[in-house]
Amino acid sequence: MKPAPFTYHDPQTLDEAYGLLATLENARVLSGGQSLIPMLNFRYVQPDHIIDVAGIAAISGITYKDGILKIGAMTRQREIEYSDIVATHCPLMREAILQVGHRQTRNRGTIGGSLAHLDPAAELPLVACAMDGMIHLGGSRGTRDVAFTDYALGFMTTAIEPDEMITGVSIPTWKPGHGSAFVEFARREGDFAIVAIAALMEIDASQTITRAALAVGGALATAQRLPEAEAILVGAKANDETFRAAGEACTQIDAVEDVHAPASYRKSLAGVLTRRALKAAAERTK
């Protein structure tokens, strides 16, 4: 229950970090440590080098410009929770962050860490998925931006190359007046979600849905969009009948089975939570 020995590095600039990533074998980036340190303690991972990026000021902070919410990788979940910018421009993320772990872990954990760890039930990757987030990667070979769909390759597997690290994420925000909801079911507050649903919606004056996004977490290898249900929503009236039909479509997912719940339970839950999320999102439109 103690980490295996490693060599610790604490670069103060991105270039320094990129240089370390390019030259060191078997290195891991440490940000808030709320996922990596448990894995070190269990010795699930035994890196030879730990690169602590907490000292790099350039990758911390929250900005909003021209419809894009940009959050640095090292930004702590607590800062997101208390950010007026996030609450104003991205209510979905604000609602999701309150369901990320506990106060004690949000005080340390970062958005970059959550995206890099990519737990299938994690809330922040689900938000990035539902909102077409763009992940910013950097390394000594240069920087690149990867859309969430190309970033999340599978179960806890990302497009980050061994010589790269996440520097931040950009979220295109929705128009003012849109409605959103983040609904999850876990056995206890703060536990990993058995199923989580993120929903966003825009409605016109005739109550017709003009734009919709739906994504599911906890039920599949990674957060995924639900295109069949989205297709049912767009152009339909925002009412219980539509939401029921969309929920029904979500029960068709190829849900995973584990000690927490059988696949059939997750499918059923996906349908119920989708209905609830859509209803709540519709009620929040203005």
């Binding site: 229950m1 340190i37 602590d52 872990t105 340390r108």
Partner: peptide, 26 residues
Amino acid sequence: EHGVCGACTVLIDGRSARSCLTLAVQ
């Protein structure tokens, strides 16, 4: 020692944190 039980909670710069999920160097 893996961040589940909360017994090791301390305040770091006034904010609660699990000391078993923090390296002393941090």
